Amino acid sequence: MKLNRNMNNRQLADAFYQDSKEKGTVDVAFDNMMDVRQVLETIPNLGTILVDPRLEKYKRDHLLTDLIKHFDINTQSFLHMLYDYHLISDIRDVVNEFEKIYDYKNRTVVAKVTTAVQLTDRQEERLINVMKQKLDAKKVLLHTNVDEHVLGGVVIEAESQVYDGSIRSNLEALEKQLIR
């Protein structure tokens, strides 16, 4: 895997994805990156700590080694490269970009669903099946949100698109037609 200091977070994540794919460890790399995210939730400023010159280098080295010792060798190598190139402070953004690439390549769609009332399990299942067909997805992950401002229906945000099937939206469209 070839990295350089001039790569942006997307390029870094893509290089790691491609390298993992070549080695047949993409799913392991994804699991490791999700573990890194969990560590970052516990220690939000970890990237900053690992580049802070006030902390002695050997202590920073030891901290990184302890954090990644259970990851596969490819992930360890990638994180060490980020650390060596002083790019580790951007680790949160690299993880986010890696997840986006992984989801795209595996046709996993993450959708934000807003409704007036909580969806039942059956409604969620039907919505997932419809979205799989419409978006040619293998897997759909729903993040549901209840918002009393949605009079009824559903608003879905997925793959940079908004599908607004809310009653409020339909009423606004009807109002515009009547005004013409």
Rank of each mutant, 00 (worst) to 15 (best):
T65H: 10
L55W: 13
F16L: 14
L87N: 06
L87V: 02
L79V: 09
L50D: 03
L46H: 05
Y17W: 07
L82S: 08
N4E: 05
N6V: 04
D84W: 04
V28W: 03
D27V: 06
N32S: 04
V94I: 15
I43F: 13
T65V: 06
T42W: 02
Q38T: 12
D84T: 13
D52C: 12
N45R: 12
L46E: 01
I68M: 11
G47P: 02
K59L: 14
M81C: 08
D66E: 15
Y17K: 04
F16D: 05
N32P: 03
T42E: 14
N45Q: 14
N9P: 00
T75I: 10
Y17M: 06
T65Y: 07
N6F: 08
D66R: 11
T48M: 14
A29R: 00
D19K: 00
I101Y: 00
R10D: 07
Y102F: 15
P44Y: 06
V36S: 02
Y102R: 05
T48V: 06
M81D: 01
I68W: 00
V28T: 02
N6A: 05
Q76S: 01
A13T: 10
V36W: 00
H80G: 01
V39R: 04
H80M: 10
D31T: 12
M81H: 04
T25L: 14
Q38L: 04
K23C: 07
T42L: 09
R54G: 09
M33H: 01
K21A: 09
M81E: 09
D93F: 04
K59W: 07
L40T: 11
K57D: 11
S77V: 05
L12G: 01
E22F: 03
T65A: 12
D72M: 09
D90T: 14
L40I: 10
F16A: 13
N74P: 02
Q76L: 03
L40W: 00
T75K: 09
N45G: 07
D27N: 14
D66K: 15
S77E: 08
E99G: 05
H70Y: 10
D19V: 11
L40A: 07
D93R: 13
G47K: 13
H62W: 12
M81P: 00
V51H: 05
R5Q: 07
I91C: 04
I68N: 04
N9K: 05
K100N: 08
D103Q: 08
T75A: 08
M81S: 07
R10G: 00
K59A: 08
D72Y: 15
A13C: 06
G47M: 13
V36Q: 03
